[in-house]
Amino acid sequence: MEAGRSAGTPAIELEDATVAFRLADARMFTAVAQARLSVADGEFVAIVGPTGCGKSTLLNIAAGLLRPVSGAARIFGQPLAGLNRDAGYLFQADSLFPWKTALENVAIGLEVGGRARGEARARAERWLASVGLAAFAGRYPHMLSGGQRKRVGLAQVLIRDPRILLMDEPFGPLDAQTRQIMGNLLLDLWSRDRKAVLFVTHDLEEAIALADRVVIMSAGPGSRIIGDWRVALARPRDIFEIRLEKDFHDLHREIWGVLKDEVMKGYAQSATPVETRA
């Protein structure tokens, strides 16, 4: 594994990964067709696509939660069998343990990994502080705001120091200002040790502002990767400021030219039921 890392092996490599589900009437529904994607170690890649295009499906393949019916997923050069132990996953839905306090939620990843409780709690406290929630350690998730819950989730994932970070529209349910604050927090934390990140979003602006590369997916079913742009904006970035730069606007216009058609297709298709689409 370590040898693979130094040789520049990609952190995540999807090779012609296809995911299909069996529908209730026994016909197959292809969610993602022959996806080819590679994320280098230390690279921040954002996937953007219209709703229901299978962005999360790609993420779940990389996490090992879903197996492709054909094709392969490799993590640091090793074929992925079972769950991806190198990855931390920040989910779109609320996924904190409601019966644990913020501190316990953050510490649990270390505790189940065999660390002593005292040490795990002490490190969890430091992580809560670094996401700005030192004063909320004893709160239960329902006592926290949506943004605060996402911060706890971020600390919960990062405390295990995964080599890969998978994020599924993590800031989707938050309001616009909170999203930008969370984006800056994420970039700040990421810049410390530059993990490989696969970040799914439907928001093109967010994708450009955060990522090194923006990957565009076509509308489903059987969605494919149809575009791959490098974001040459300098780091460190400030999400509030970067949206005002000319380079940002030029890239945005260029990508949106492609994405727009797919978004329209996606909308048209979401008006018809799944069965008639396949």
Binding site: L83, A87, Y89, F91, A93, S95, F97, V112, G113, R160
Partner: peptide, 26 residues
């Protein structure tokens, strides 16, 4: 919740730990 369960598995819980930290409290 499916999300809580998937999260627990991604955080590295084995069957016994899922029982103790997820199914049992729920």
């Amino acid at each position: 919740s499916g999300a809580v369960l998937a999260n627990a598995r991604m955080l590295g819980m084995n069957e016994r730990q899922l029982m103790r930290h997820v199914y049992w409290p729920s």
